[in-house]
Simulated assay, not measured.
Amino acid sequence: MDTSATAPTSGRAEAKTRFNAALAEAKAGAAALRTEASDRAAAYRSQARTQSENWVGEARNYGAQAKGKAGELATDGKGKVAEALSALGRAVLDTAPTVDEKLGAKYGDYARTASRSLQDASARLDARTVDELSDDARELVRKSPALAVGIAAVGGFLLARLFRSSKD
């Protein structure tokens, strides 16, 4: 019998079997790697989502703190402006008799009227909340934007002059 003819056929079959087994093992390894990569990606996504939520929570907390502090500062500033207007009104009223003597009673009356206006403005400012004042400012800008730009320009000019004179 010729065993040489069956040997190459059985060698091929064995090689084919081994190749198919190696191929199946490679496919299983690739599937395992794909599953592991998918699991790791899901874990990283979850970690990133959690970290993102933590950062958003911290940012909201800082925002709330900043808003509270800004509200406190605005209220303090409003109080100081009201006090300054009141003090200016008192100073103008105190100088009214001198104005009467030097320029006449008519100009002294102007000074008294200006003093009352300053005192009234101080009282109105003190009686209103910061939110009401900001609503009024928004409404002013909405109704007459040119006036708002003019006021901002004059205020900016005065601040520039103030800071320039304090630098010199």
Rank of each mutant, 00 (worst) to 15 (best):
A137T: 04
G29T: 08
V92Y: 01
S52M: 12
G71A: 12
R60N: 08
V149S: 10
T17F: 12
D131N: 09
R18C: 09
I151V: 09
A153M: 10
E72H: 05
E101Q: 07
L85H: 05
E132P: 07
F19M: 13
R18H: 10
R164C: 02
G63N: 05
R18A: 14
A31F: 08
R18G: 09
E25D: 04
E53D: 13
D94N: 15
D120I: 06
F163Y: 04
A32T: 10
R40Y: 00
F157N: 11
L162S: 10
E83K: 10
T17M: 10
S38M: 04
D136E: 13
G79E: 02
D109M: 12
L85Q: 06
G11M: 14
A152S: 12
F157K: 15
A66V: 06
V130C: 06
L125K: 10
E58Q: 13
S144K: 11
A37H: 15
A84F: 08
T95S: 09
D168N: 15
I151D: 14
D39G: 02
T113C: 07
T98M: 14
Y110L: 05
D39I: 00
L73P: 06
L147W: 12
A26T: 12
K78T: 06
E72K: 10
G108Q: 09
R60V: 01
A13N: 15
L103V: 05
V149I: 13
T98Y: 15
K167A: 15
S52I: 07
D100T: 08
K106Y: 01
P8I: 15
R116L: 00
R60I: 00
P8W: 12
G156Q: 01
S144Y: 03
Y107A: 14
F19P: 09
R128C: 04
V92M: 03
A30R: 03
E72F: 03
R34K: 11
A123R: 15
D135S: 14
E132T: 08
V99S: 03
D131W: 07
G57Q: 15
S134P: 03
A82Y: 06
A111G: 08
S115I: 04
T129R: 01
S165F: 00
A123Y: 05
E25S: 06
A42I: 02
E132S: 11
A5N: 10
A96N: 03
S144M: 01
D109N: 11
A13G: 12
K16D: 10
A15G: 11
K143C: 01
R12Y: 01
A37P: 09
A48D: 09
A137M: 05
F157E: 07
A87S: 14
E72G: 08
S86I: 05
F163L: 09
K78F: 04
G71V: 03
R116T: 00
L159V: 01
T3W: 15
S144R: 14
S86Y: 13
L88W: 03
F157R: 14
G156K: 02
A59R: 11
A152T: 10
A24F: 01
L133E: 11
T35D: 11
S46A: 12
V56N: 12
V149G: 09
A111V: 06
L73R: 10
D109K: 14
K78A: 04
A127W: 07
Y44P: 14
A96R: 06
